[in-house]
Design a protein around this nucleic acid. Structure first.
Lengths: 137, 137
DNA sequence: GTAACTGCAAAATATTTGCATCCTT
DNA sequence: AAGGATGCAAATATTTTGCAGTTAC
C-alpha cells in the first residue's frame, strides 16, 4: 500500500488515519463516490466534519475531482493522470447508470472536441452520459 | 405574454401568480438560473417553499430541465423544443463562464455522439464546458 | 364547489466555523 | 517543539413535510 503514502507525500499532506482510509476507499472503489457514500463506507467512526475537510483538501490538491450531476449531489472521483493542484486534465466521459445508480469513469472514452461560437474560450469540459450500464442490462 | 399561458396550459397547470412570475423570469433570462437566483430575482415576496415546489413541478412537466454542475448548485434552464414530461431531448452544450459565472445555453452547438463501450446504453448526455465567454474576454 | 396551489411553521438534512486537543513530522 | 489535523459544539444554510387557508377553473 505504498501507493497511498506516495500520493499523500507527493502532495505535501501529512499521513493521517482519516486521509489514509478515505483515499484507500477511492482507490478500491470502481466508480465515483458522494460525500454520503464516503461516510457510510468508512466503518471507523470519523467525524462528518473530517470527511468534509478531507474531501475538500483532496480536491484542492488535485487528488480527486468532482463530477457534475443533474441532481444536487456532488460526486468525487480519483484523478488519474496529469492532474496537478487546480489543473485537471480529466478528459474522459462519466457514465451514470439509471438502474444501479453507480457512476463509472469511462477512462477510454475521450470527450470529443466541440467547436464553440466565436469568442468563447474553453478551459474544461465535462461530459456526463446516463443510461443503462453493462452490468444492468 | 400569451406564450406564458400557453406553456402552462399545455402542461395542464393552473395559472397562478407564482408560476407566471417564475416562468416569466426564465423566459426573460438568457442563461440558467439556480434556485437562489430565482428567489432573489423575484421581487414579489414568494415563499421559499413555493419556489421549490414550482421548480419541481416545472421539471416534472418538462418545462425546464436541470443542468449538471461541478459545484453543488442545481441550475435550471428552459427546455426549448421537443421536451415532453420526463423526456428531454436537450441536445445542446452548456457553457459556464468562469468570470461572470453565467451559464449559457449554446443552442447551436450540438453534443457530438460518442461511442460507448459494449453493453452501455445511452439515454441522455450532458456536456458542460467552462471557460471564458464572449462578453468577458 | 372541488381540486389544486400557497404560506406558515416546523422538522429533517446538509454544510460551515471556532476552538481546544491531539497527532505527524 | 511547531504546525497542522481532528473532534466536538454550535451556528448557518438548505430542503422537505404537514396542514390550514386561499385561489383557479
Amino acid at each position: 500500500m505504498d501507493q497511498l503514502m506516495d500520493i499523500l507525500k507527493r502532495n505535501q499532506l501529512s499521513v493521517t488515519e482519516g486521509r489514509r482510509k478515505i483515499l484507500e476507499l477511492f482507490l478500491k472503489s470502481d466508480g465515483a463516490l458522494a460525500h454520503a457514500d464516503v461516510e457510510k463506507k468508512i466503518d471507523a467512526g470519523f467525524d462528518r466534519v473530517t470527511v468534509y475537510r478531507t474531501l475538500q483538501t483532496f480536491v484542492e490538491k488535485g487528488i480527486i475531482h468532482n463530477i457534475p450531476t443533474t441532481d444536487n449531489s456532488i460526486l468525487y472521483a480519483l484523478c488519474k493522470d496529469n492532474c496537478e493542484a487546480g489543473h485537471h486534465h480529466d478528459n474522459h466521459v462519466h457514465f451514470i447508470c439509471d438502474v444501479c445508480d453507480k457512476t463509472i469513469c469511462l477512462e477510454h472514452v475521450a470527450i470529443p472536441e466541440v467547436k464553440l461560437p466565436k469568442g468563447y474560450q474553453q478551459r474544461q469540459a465535462d461530459l456526463v452520459i446516463s443510461g443503462v450500464c453493462d452490468d444492468c442490462r
